[in-house]
Design a protein around this nucleic acid. Structure first.
Lengths: 163, 163
DNA sequence: CTCAGTGCAAAGGATTTGCATGCCG
DNA sequence: CGGCATGCAAATCCTTTGCACTGAG
């Protein structure tokens, strides 16, 4: 589990767990939701992964949380804008910490062979061009554009090796 | 490589169905696959949609094709690089014609409220910045990057109205 | 005490697969 | 002919839900 693009090994973005929990509790509270042990476990599993994780991965990392609770709580965390659902190569749910909590805007590098997803840092130039494109697209289509996703696709080193 | 159609910017390029079928047959043949009636029906359904469609939508448009055949054939068409799977707001499969067949590189505008996906034209500046980002990401991660996807997210006019 | 959260099990949907048959090459 | 493609049905897999129970406020 490594992050690409920011910080030293192990502790990339200054993830202040304590502050994180406080903020999460706050956001949950605003929806009249509690910050329970299960939710903490799931939140930490996601926060520590450093890349989008699937439900099975969350279950492994959050040990002891039943599947149904994981699904239910992930859903709550997403509603509270604490987590975010992202799509990988396959059509199975992957989740990551909300960007305003993880502290760094990033995009994804997806291996279309094994489905692995790696975070990559955002590029200012890219963001700028994208913002412009979003404005134009919004005015052309009438959509209210408030988010974007950039995924690069390819094959990861492991899959390249297994060629 | 061939390009089908000659459309001006904005309007969907008029699809040359005949040439399209020839090219598709060719790509299938290279995988020792036949271009059967079902596959034609599915291909045309996708080609005419002008935006990523779900399996149910394909079934409607391709009338008479059984679900299992649709799934199996979509899979084959994707392997043959004739179709492409794209992810929408939910985690259900959406498919579109390969870009080198539809003739215009584009991105997607996804409504996270109703799941609708609208094609939007690509922006040169964005593509350029993206290419640069891809190069850098590849060298940092060891991935072989050969594809990208940009999705803008927001709410479509209909959903904005239903607010 | 009350209500949100929990956990189990069963339900639901989408997607995949086994198998006998049909059709193209 | 031989093998790929087909259709149907059954199997799988991921995800959601119903319901009774537990725990925090």
């Amino acid at each position: 589990m490594r992050r690409v693009g920011s910080g030293a090994a192990g502790a990339p973005a200054p993830l202040d767990l304590e502050g994180l929990h406080v903020e999460v509790a706050l956001r949950l509270a605003s929806l009249d939701q509690r910050y329970t042990a299960n939710r903490r476990a799931i939140l930490e599993a996601i926060a520590h992964a450093g890349r989008p994780v699937t439900i099975p991965e969350i279950l492994e990392r959050a040990g002891g949380v039943p599947q149904s609770s994981a699904y239910r709580n992930i859903s709550v965390l997403c509603e509270a804008r604490v987590a975010r659902r992202v799509a990988g190569a396959d059509d199975h749910g992957r989740f990551e910490l909300a960007e305003d909590l993880s502290g760094h805007h990033h995009h994804h590098l997806v291996c279309w062979s094994c489905g692995r997803v790696t975070d990559i840092a955002a590029f200012p130039r890219l963001e700028q061009a994208l913002a412009e494109a979003a404005r134009l697209a919004a005015s052309e289509t009438g959509y209210e554009v408030d988010d974007h996703r950039i995924d690069l696709g390819g094959r990861c080193p492991a899959c390249l090796g297994a060629c």
